[in-house]
Amino acid sequence: MAREKNFYPLAEGLSTQDTFAVLGDAQKFQKHKHAWKVWRALKDFRCVVYPVAEGLSRIDGSKVYSNLAQLTDKVTVVVPCLLPERLKSLVPDAVSAGCSKIWFQEQTWTRELQQECDSSGIEVIRGCVLRHRLYPSKISLRYLSPCYWHGLRDVKVPMKRFGRY
């Protein structure tokens, strides 16, 4: 018997039903920095999510794609986790891959990227993916997470427990 998959709202019209590409570099994935945390959180939300980084073939058992072109027609949302100076071709690459939205993380958005998105018809969402993660109340570390505090009133995705939500 197949279980019905639950979908949950995220930021500004996004939901866990969307498909995501997390754009980072090998260091941000291997050293468990922001790109890895975002990718892991989206996986924990049971989203279809693909890691994208040059020079890396696998991470935690998942295939890593070297560019967005390899994901043409597979993703609806790109989540860049690189500084703006490393995102020069982001918008054209997203358009050619068939993406309709870019979810900019903290410190990745610029006015120039916004203008490129507006002229290309790409919807822009701003804010951290980790704001939507639900932290267990028994763990006091949630109070130390800036994403927890910044997203205190944001919609949260339930944590998996025993293989289900």
Rank of each mutant, 00 (worst) to 15 (best):
M1H: 10
M1E: 15
K5A: 15
K5L: 13
K5Y: 10
N6C: 13
L10N: 02
E12P: 02
E12V: 10
T16K: 01
D18A: 07
D18G: 07
A21V: 03
L23Y: 03
A26I: 15
Q27W: 11
K31Y: 08
H34F: 10
A35F: 04
K37R: 08
W39N: 03
R40V: 10
L42H: 00
L42M: 10
D44Y: 09
R46E: 09
P51Q: 12
I59M: 06
D60G: 08
G61T: 14
G61Q: 13
K63T: 14
K63M: 11
S66F: 13
L68P: 00
L68Q: 04
Q70F: 09
L71I: 06
L71V: 07
L83S: 14
K88A: 15
L90I: 07
D93L: 10
A94V: 05
A97N: 02
K101Q: 08
W103S: 04
E106Y: 05
R111M: 14
R111S: 13
Q114H: 06
E116I: 03
G127D: 00
R131Y: 10
R131P: 01
R131I: 09
P136H: 06
R142W: 04
R142D: 07
Y143H: 11
S145N: 07
P146T: 06
P146Y: 06
L152E: 09
L152P: 02
R153T: 15
D154W: 03
V155D: 07
K156V: 05
M159P: 02
K160Q: 13
R161Q: 15
F162R: 14
R164E: 15
R164G: 15
